[in-house]
Write a protein that binds this DNA or RNA. Structure first.
Lengths: 194, 194
DNA sequence: ACCTGAACACCGTTCAAGT
DNA sequence: ACCTGAACACCGTTCAAGT
């Protein structure tokens, strides 16, 4: 209800929202701080208070992306039946839906890190990895997955999901193939078990 | 031996070479047509004869990348022993070495396609996919891989390799873990066989 | 056929100054 | 604490003109 004559009061959130929309509709290349400022009706230097530079904006987008993906994955698993294969399939489906809907964002989340030292992963990325790790451990407990170091199996599952996503977002595979790819992935990880 | 006073004669190749080096050492963001022209000692508008725009340069880089990756993969497979698991391991190792050495290039090769219509894949990408498809078919013939549509299994293997590569280039996994990841991948695809 | 030079519109980034 | 306005150095892209 503010007229925001000078202080916007909400600028950071507005910029992030606009950025997510532009990212989805136009891709990373088209994402410009000046353009975002323009859309928010604010001077071109204003965003600097909230994002030190363009990379900081991209980092914030990636962070929010990890948080949302973790949420959607957990929700999908929670909604699935007790059957382990169904839970695994639900998780994979949620991951790939995210990839199809927000491919540019997912690319950003797994983009080459700038060589600015051994920066720790964002907490939201850890949440995603933890959720998938829990799913792996659960599968091993019910003997639906092969035994062995759960961290290694988790990494392999994340890699497989991310790889399928990369094939789809890059146009090397059609979104229509994702159903088959999910089925094959579940079969590969749970083969000869139950 | 030319003094190249006006016509460079070799500009396209020089630009591509410089671009590959910059890509490896500085990343895509730092890749600029003007800078490349400067390094080649040529006017900033000269590259336009050879690359219509920046995207055309990136496409050419990706194309050359696919060709080189296909070569390295074929060479690694040819050098491996007759044992099928060894061949699969050799292929995966070559793929991940490429990812570790030229992560930015691999990112480029699997970057989101610009929405400029249903462009056909470059022939070099097809060569890579064909090489991996042959490896899959061979594995099914000797019963080292599960039966089923070889195209689907091929897509899944490419996805797994590309996913591991993405985890490594993004810093989500350490290059030191690639050996374990390769072993786990081979075990997953060949489990309970021979 | 290939390259130059000037020009245009757009960036990211910085910094004094305003409220 | 947050935002403005001018300034700087850099892009990609275009196009007439040169060789």
């Amino acid at each position: 209800m503010a007229d925001r004559p000078y202080h916007h009061g909400n600028l950071r959130a507005v910029l992030l929202d606009e950025a997510q929309r532009t990212l989805r509709e136009q891709g990373v290349e088209q994402l410009s701080l000046r353009d975002l400022a323009r859309q928010a009706g604010v001077s071109h230097a204003a965003p600097r208070r909230h994002f030190h530079d363009r990379q900081a904006l991209l980092d914030a987008l990636a962070d929010a992306g990890f948080a949302r993906l973790a949420d959607e994955l957990c929700a999908a698993i929670a909604d699935a039946s007790e059957d382990y294969e169904a839970r695994l399939r639900a998780a994979a489906t949620a991951y790939l839906r995210f990839a199809i809907d927000d491919g540019a964002l997912l690319d950003l989340m797994f983009a080459t890190k700038n060589a600015s030292g051994p920066t720790a992963l964002p907490a939201s990325a850890t949440r995603l990895f933890t959720a998938i790790g829990d799913l792996i451990s659960q599968g091993q407990e019910v003997d639906a997955l092969p035994p062995g170091d759960p961290a290694r199996l988790r990494l392999l599952l994340v890699a497989t999901l991310q790889g399928i996503a990369a094939l789809i977002t890059s146009g090397r595979a059609d979104p229509g193939q994702s159903h088959d790819l999910i089925a094959d992935t579940v079969a590969l990880f749970t083969r000869d078990r139950h």
